[in-house]
Design a protein around this nucleic acid. Structure first.
Length: 341
DNA sequence: CGTTTTTGACCTGCGC
DNA sequence: GCGCAGGTCAAAAACG
C-alpha cells in the first residue's frame, strides 16, 4: 500500500500512537501473566528510551531485541501491557510524547484522553511454532503437492526438511518472546522503526476486522507481528510482536548516525535504541510494580526508569476495564485479576 | 524491474 | 476422526 508499506522507519504518522506492549515470553512454556493497564494519558516529553532497567528487568524492547522504534510518532493513545514470564511485566498506556532521545522528528503531539483497557496474556501455544514452522510449512505444504517426483533434488530437499521438522518437534523449540500492545489509532500500522512485509491476512472469528501478518524484511530476522483491530472498539489496534530483531532498526541507525551522542544505554542493543522515543517515553510499567508491592528500584539509572515510576503513580487511580472480548481476551484473559484490590 | 500487497489454498493444532 | 480457527505459503497483481 502506501509506501511505507507497512511501517516505515522513523516516520510519523499523524495518527498514531504507540501503545504499550504487553509482552509475553513464551520461552519455557510457562505461562503468562497478566497485565493491566491503562488509560489514556499523557506524559509529555520525556526523554528517551530506555533500557528497561536492570538486569532482571528487561524492557519489552529489550526482549524484542529491538523492537520498536518508535521514532515514529504518535498521536493516539495506547494501552497496553506486556509480560514476560520471567520476572518482568510491563504495561503501558500511552500517548504522545515529546521528543525522544533519538531525536528524530517528533514533535509533541497532543494527546487525547482515551480509553482504558486492560490486557493479559496468554500466549501459549498460539504462536510458538512459528519459527520452526516456517521451515515446516515450506516443506510440508509444497512438497506434498509437488511430490510427484518432478525432480530428485526436490525430493531430497523435502526429505531433509521433513527430517528437520521432525527433529524440531522433538526438541521442543523455544518459544519466541512476544509482546503485544494496544494502540488507539485509526492507523493499523504502527511505525516502529522497522520494515515489515505483509505475508498474510486472515479473517478473525468473531471480529469483523481481519488480522494482518507481517514479517521483518531484514534478512535473517525472524521477527513477526500481527496487527488487528479490537472488534469491540475499532479504534483500538492490537499489535503483537514475536521474536527479537537481530539488527538495528533503520530508524535507529539513522538516528544514531545523526545524533551520535546517545548514551550507551541507548546504543547498546538495537532494540533499545530504537525504543528511545515513543514507547518508552510514554508510559511503561514495570512488572513488579504491577504484581508486587515492592517498589521497583531500577538497577540502571536512566531517564526512562525514573519515568516509569512517575507514570505508574499517575496511573494508579485509573480504572481498568477491559471492554474487549474475544480477541483481546484471548490475549489477556486475566487482566482483571491483576487489578489492584 | 524489484519489492510489497493481495488472496486463495494449504497445513497444523485443538476441541468435540 | 472431523471440523474449526489460526497461521503460512506463494502466485499473481499492484506499486514506485
Amino acid at each position: 500500500m502506501s509506501d511505507g508499506k507497512s511501517t516505515n522507519p522513523g516516520r510519523c504518522d499523524p495518527n498514531f500512537g504507540p501503545s504499550f506492549p504487553f509482552f509475553f515470553d513464551d520461552n519455557q512454556g510457562s505461562s503468562m501473566c497478566n497485565i493491566s493497564v491503562g488509560h489514556q494519558d499523557y506524559f509529555g516529553g520525556g526523554g528517551g528510551g530506555g533500557s528497561g532497567g536492570g538486569a532482571s528487568y528487561m524492557s519489552f524492547a529489550g526482549y524484542l531485541g529491538g523492537g520498536f522504534d518508535a521514532s515514529a510518532c504518535s498521536p493516539s493513545d495506547v494501552i497496553s501491557a506486556s509480560i514476560d514470564q520471567q520476572d518482568h511485566v510491563t504495561v503501558a498506556g500511552s500517548s504522545s510524547l515529546g521528543k525522544g532521545a533519538a531525536g528524530e522528528t517528533s514533535e509533541s503531539h497532543p494527546v487525547s484522553p482515551n480509553s482504558s483497557i486492560s490486557a493479559s496474556s496468554s500466549n501459549e501455544a498460539t504462536m510458538t511454532e512459528e519459527d520452526v514452522d516456517k521451515g515446516k510449512k515450506e516443506t510440508s505444504g509444497k512438497n506434498q503437492q509437488e511430490g510427484c517426483g518432478d525432480d530428485h533434488e526436490a525430493q531430497e530437499k523435502l526429505t531433509k526438511k521433513v527430517d528437520e521438522k521432525a527433529n524440531k518437534k522433538k526438541e521442543k523449540r523455544p518459544k519466541e518472546p512476544r509482546f503485544a500492545f494496544l494502540t488507539k489509532s485509526d492507523i493499523e500500522n504502527l511505525e516502529d522503526g522497522y520494515r515489515w512485509r505483509k505475508y498474510g491476512q486472515k479473517a478473525v472469528k468473531n471480529s469483523p476486522h481481519p488480522r494482518s501478518y507481517y514479517r521483518c524484511t531484514s534478512q535473517k530476522c525472524t521477527v513477526k507481528k500481527r496487527v488487528e483491530r479490537s472488534f469491540q472498539d475499532p479504534s483500538v489496534v492490537i499489535t503483537t510482536y514475536e521474536g527479537r530483531h537481530n539488527h538495528l532498526s533503520p530508524a535507529a541507525l539513522r538516528a544514531n548516525a545523526t545524533i551520535g551522542m546517545l548514551p550507551p544505554t541507548f546504543l547498546m542493543p538495537p532494540p533499545l535504541s530504537s525504543f528511545g522515543h515513543n514507547i518508552f517515553t510514554h508510559e511503561y510499567f514495570m512488572g513488579d510494580q504491577l504484581f508486587a508491592s515492592t517498589p521497583h528500584e531500577p538497577q540502571v539509572h536512566d531517564p526512562v526508569s525514573s519515568m516509569f515510576h512517575r507514570k505508574l503513580e499517575a496511573r494508579q487511580d485509573s480504572e481498568f476495564q477491559f471492554p474487549d472480548h474475544g480477541l483481546l481476551q484471548d490475549m489477556i484473559p486475566s487482566f482483571q485479576n491483576t487489578q489492584q484490590p
